[in-house]
Design a protein around this nucleic acid. Structure first.
Length: 418
DNA sequence: TCTGGGGTCCTAGGACCC
DNA sequence: TCTGGGGTCCTAGGACCC
């Protein structure tokens, strides 16, 4: 029987900021989403003060000031880099690792399990803290769903921050007090339906009939029931290339003009294409959307999206960009207060053509893209870009309170005074 | 004035085929 | 009275995750 761990970074974005700014220790801290929209990460102190997850910043600005909460814009460059450090520290510890999100990873051990696994995992937790500065909680269990629950207990109720839920005697006691809505894969709608069926706790769900759940709900719920019973049904996912790549952003201020939307879409398309080339894929279809604010009243609200298949798969920014521009022209309606736009590159396939040598005599058609990517890798993000992306970008999102790029820019290295 | 962004998976329903 | 039926493939949309 395999065995799983879920490693979860505690208040990840806040923890990243604290590594480079020790003054933030033991003080209430909060991190805002893109565009300084809402709260997406809170320190324990902020949680105790009653700052909710997802709180819109403009509504809580005075609350945040009154309570002395230190607030930052998201710095995804920093968080991404710190995430890599944590993951590379975890990687050697097990037989297989799945990076589940920027701040979570599943580890899996095959039979025969290493002796003293619990102690090894405790040591791993200390190592991550020492090498990266990031505190983590770890849940241990025979299935991924149980490991998620165990990590939750580890974070909230257990001072060592490592919890093993595989002992049958205490397992039911724990599951009985664990709300069904907090089980991995159960959210709003499903939780409500389960409660209507008399299923309130994780233990109730564990004791329900999987076939019945499949008949009356879905195969997803059946799997959860089996997982709660210790039968592993959710496999480790490979780290294969993405099947879709999306880039979408809210604007820093409302946008009315087609020309500005075109510029934004050109920018987003070029960034998505760059990401796609990095994983060596080609797009077969492209989806574009523009939207007004979700919170705008009915008559003024507008959402339009369009998906178009490409005649041949491509990773060339200018080809994709031409197509995206045509699509924007088709869905644009004047006199609307646009707040957001986005693009998704769909049905990605692997590019089997070998990467062209930059110094080869014969020029390949996509050489331009490779040269651009190379220059940006070597000399810094955005050193070279397509004219259509614009130079002023007045629609660009806000991030007024962002911390420095401590780990990815030589100029922002922390200096230590003796 | 101001309420995030990026994914995957499942299902239902239509088109099409024999 | 009777007006097949089952299979596959594709797509859009919804649910759910962090």
């Amino acid at each position: 029987m395999p065995f799983f761990a879920l490693v979860d970074c505690n208040n990840f974005y806040v923890s990243c900021e604290r590594v480079f700014n020790p003054q933030l220790q033991h003080r209430p801290v909060a991190i805002l989403s893109n565009n300084d929209g809402c709260v997406v990460s809170r320190s324990e102190e902020s949680k105790k003060l009653g700052l909710p997850m997802g709180a819109p910043y403009f509504k809580y600005e005075s609350f945040i000031r009154q309570n002395g909460i230190m607030v930052f814009s998201s710095n995804y460059t920093l968080y991404g880099d710190m995430s890599n450090r944590v993951m590379e520290t975890l990687r050697p510890a097990s037989d297989m690792m799945e990076i589940y999100s920027i701040d979570e990873a599943f580890l899996r051990w095959n039979d025969p399990l290493p002796p003293n696994l619990f102690d090894q995992v405790c040591a791993l937790r200390r190592r991550v803290k020492q090498w990266t500065g990031i505190p983590v909680s770890i849940g241990l269990a025979p299935t991924k769903t149980l490991a998620k629950i165990a990590a939750n207990i580890a974070k909230n109720q257990c001072h060592e921050s490592v919890f093993d839920i595989s002992k049958p005697t205490q397992q039911n006691k724990v599951l009985a007090t664990f709300k069904v809505d907090d089980v991995w894969g159960v959210s709003d709608g499903l939780g409500k339906r389960l409660r209507e069926m008399g299923v309130y706790s994780a233990l109730d769900l564990k004791n329900s009939d999987p076939a019945f759940m499949r008949r009356h709900l879905t195969v997803v719920v059946e799997r959860i029931v089996r997982e709660l019973n210790g039968q592993s049904c959710i496999p480790m996912e490979g780290i294969g290339p993405r099947r879709n790549i999306m880039y979408s952003r809210s604007f820093g201020r409302p946008v009315y003009q087609l020309s500005e939307l075109q510029q934004a879409i050109a920018d987003y398309t070029s960034r998505a294409a760059q990401k796609m080339r990095r994983q060596g894929s080609l797009a077969q279809a492209i989806h574009v959307f523009i939207a007004t604010s979700r919170h705008q009243d009915g008559a003024n609200r507008y959402y339009a999206g369009l998906t178009v298949g490409l005649s041949s798969a491509t990773d060339n920014s200018s080809n994709l960009l031409k197509q995206a521009q045509r699509m924007i022209n088709d869905i644009f309606k004047p006199n609307r207060r646009y707040q957001k736009a986005g693009i998704t590159l769909l049905n990605l396939t692997q590019n089997t053509q070998p990467a062209a040598n930059l110094f080869a005599d014969s020029a390949k058609p996509d050489q331009l893209m490779q040269v651009m990517d190379q220059i940006n890798r070597q000399f810094g993000h955005d050193k070279i870009f397509l004219a259509a992306q614009g130079t002023t970008r007045p629609w660009q999102m806000r991030c007024k309170m962002r911390s420095p790029f401590y780990t990815t820019n030589w100029d922002k290295l922390v200096t230590v005074k003796a």
